[in-house]
Design a protein around this nucleic acid. Structure first.
Lengths: 152, 152
DNA sequence: TATTTAGTTTAATCGCGATTGAACAAAAAA
DNA sequence: TTTTTTGTTCAATCGCGATTAAACTAAATA
């Protein structure tokens, strides 16, 4: 593969990272920064390199990077008067953790809903109970899988 | 539990449903409609009942309901010149389906990223490979669980 | 000390989805 | 036929997050 093909492929990927992270609630620029730090050949980039390649203002880069660092998604290394940023490699189960939190909140919502029903045998009440059972089964299953992966 | 306690509890729950569905990309009103159809005692409500209890305009109710129906989240029953709406009880694994689609798109993103790396042994490349392996293990596991649940 | 470099802060703007209100259409009722 | 009911359509507005530009600060360099 030619080098310029690779670089333009990277640019496209950066936008895809951006779209993905935007879809899960990140600011567009935050997603593209994560994308850049993921796809670029050198995996530790300076503030300047980031704003130049993504063509964003210093202001937004500053705000977004501070946030990403505070959320532990990006790590910062100070060298001289420059800041270098790199992807923070988080727990492998990060994606799963977030999904399980979502399951917990759904489970709570449905449980409370059933509590407030006059008719606990109503169509929705029965449906919600089935979902709760499925969530419980899922969580048990996941706990087992996590243990298996840990002990490899 | 007193009846008015139950009703105000329902109102709070409706807003929680709203927040939850908003967090996964629905319009605020869409989430509250789903909430209302989930928590209310009668589980089939007319257009009028919906806009009165949620205090929303006819315009937004019309637009949002049409969308919810087209997405198969809500079912509509026509009776006389009135429309009645109820929650559409979807596949139990709906939540999981969506999560697995997300896993697929992450997997694709990471795979493509590795393809474009000059150094396939770079820190990020190795990290991404680990995530891909974890996703694959997860999907295998889920397939097994689904089968188990189907055959109960 | 004066100057340059690197990044921060903040006021202003831009864009866009969500929501409403009011006019409108269709069908039932009178 | 006329009126009422039920819901739809669409232009206008509202609100808000994302982004930028430019002034500003702090630290390194000359």
């Amino acid at each position: 593969m030619l080098d310029n093909e690779r670089l333009s492929g990277q640019d496209q990927l950066i936008d895809r990272f951006g779209s993905y992270f935007e879809s899960i609630g990140f600011q567009p620029i935050a997603g593209r920064i994560i994308g850049l730090l993921s796809v670029s050949d050198r995996e530790e980039l300076s503030f300047d390199e980031i704003i130049n390649r993504l063509k964003i203002s210093k202001g937004s880069a500053s705000v977004v990077l501070r946030r990403l660092v505070s959320e532990c998604r990006v790590a910062v290394v100070e060298s001289g008067r420059r800041h270098y940023y790199k992807l923070n490699q988080q727990n492998l189960f990060e994606l799963l953790d977030e999904f399980e939190r979502m399951c917990d909140s759904v489970r709570y919502l449905l449980n409370t809903t059933i509590d407030l029903k006059t008719d606990k045998e109503s169509s929705n009440a029965k449906y919600f109970n089935q979902i709760i059972n499925t969530i419980d089964r899922y969580k048990t299953n996941m706990a087992t899988m996590r243990q298996a992966v840990q002990t490899i």
